[in-house]
Computed example of a mutant assay.
Amino acid sequence: MTSPSVPDDRQRADEWSARPRLVSSTLKGHHHVLHVWPLEDRTWVKCREPRAELLWFDRRCFRSEEQLLRALKEHRIECVPDVVDIGGVDFQGFIEGRTVGTRRWWSSRRVPDAIFDQLVDLFRETVRITPDMLKAERRCESQDRPEDGDTDSFLERLIVFMQEQVYEPNRPVFEGLFRELGVGDESFDRLRKRVYGLTRRPFCLLHADLHRKNLIVDPRGRLWVIDWELAMLGDPLYDLATHLYLMRYPAHQENRMIQEWCRVVEHIRPGSSLGWEQDLPRILEFKRVQSVFTDVIRESLKLRQRDDLNWAGLPLAAARLHRILTAAAEPLGSKTVPAHPQIMAALVRWHRQAGTRTGTRPKPVPDAS
């Protein structure tokens, strides 16, 4: 079970709660609405309900996030939520605090040194966990488990996933829009040529989604890391690249994180940072292209309001897509990027065409659990 279901497990937690009416369902994460309960020992637990308005375009490696969290605790990674068994159902402990994504820290994008150092410690802890150490059950196919150190195959499987599970199922609806924005089948071939030839590095545990809203600082200043459902085993440099891409550090702090990451992972597992100078830019190119295919779909859908177009949100959506396309222009092989007015016009045309056909709801990644 990836997470407790709603409302059945919510009812079960109510029965165990010290104050069952004190349930909050107004806490929204990036992918979930959180339902929170206080237990008799003053522990708070949470149950996550997927947000209906968001789509999932991410590959899962582990069958149960709660099982993974238990395994991490066994390996003495303490910055993750506890797991509480309530009537045979696992619930995650709720961490009180504020995310690193709050306005207090986001305005300058700089992360306070005390939090920065704890992030470095997290990388030190995860790089020591090898694929053979974790007892958590995996759900990914055998071809998605390349030989330890085969970084090329690791990234290739992520490209295959993006092509076969994100682009192809949604091509009937979005192909015209993708074409107007300068991307299509050939984009994957170009990307493969750009990223092939990575240096071999020993595999380890990756969080694979270390962004500001998944980092919580409690009242004592301790950092907690939540949302491990996208965790995987693979190239340690991929975790750093994803973290840098999502965090958007100021330049000086990004450079410091790279240097600190290299220092700690090499100390724990020599060879983990090998070839980073050549490979980090290439993995970041993959992340930029990945954003094109997922964000074009998401931004397009956000503009739809029943049978009408959200005209007020159109300029902002086009501006976001322009930034994403510009960042990915080189690995996509795009000689020019559509200007802001061209992107707005393409979104309007897609909206009008989508309104004339049925079955235009995009296809999220299938749940194989």
Rank of each mutant, 00 (worst) to 15 (best):
S3W: 03
V6F: 08
P7H: 09
D9N: 13
Q11F: 06
R12Y: 08
A13R: 12
R21W: 13
V23R: 12
S25L: 04
G29V: 10
H32L: 09
W44S: 15
W44Y: 14
R48M: 13
F62L: 09
F62P: 05
R63W: 06
E65W: 06
E66Q: 14
E66P: 06
Q67G: 10
I86G: 08
I86L: 13
G88Q: 11
D90K: 11
D90M: 10
Q92G: 04
Q92L: 00
I95G: 01
I95Q: 04
E96G: 09
R98L: 09
R103N: 11
S108D: 14
V111L: 12
V111K: 03
P112I: 10
F116M: 06
F116G: 02
Q118K: 09
R124D: 13
V127D: 00
R128Q: 14
Q143I: 06
D144K: 03
R145A: 08
R145L: 09
S153Q: 04
F154M: 02
F154D: 00
Q165G: 03
Q165H: 10
P172A: 08
V173T: 13
V173P: 01
F174E: 12
E175W: 03
G176F: 03
R179S: 15
G182R: 12
V183N: 09
G184R: 13
Y196H: 15
G197R: 05
G197F: 04
L206H: 00
H211Y: 08
N214F: 02
L215V: 09
I216K: 10
V217Q: 06
G221F: 08
W228V: 01
L230F: 04
D235E: 05
L237F: 00
H243F: 03
Y245K: 12
M247V: 05
R248S: 04
H252M: 06
I258G: 05
W276G: 01
W276T: 02
W276H: 05
P281N: 10
P281G: 07
P281W: 04
K287Y: 01
R288Y: 07
Q290W: 03
T294L: 09
L303E: 10
Q305V: 15
Q305S: 12
L309S: 15
A312E: 15
L316I: 08
A319R: 13
A327I: 11
L332W: 07
T336H: 06
M344F: 06
A346C: 11
W350T: 11
R352I: 13
K363A: 07
D367C: 07
A368E: 13
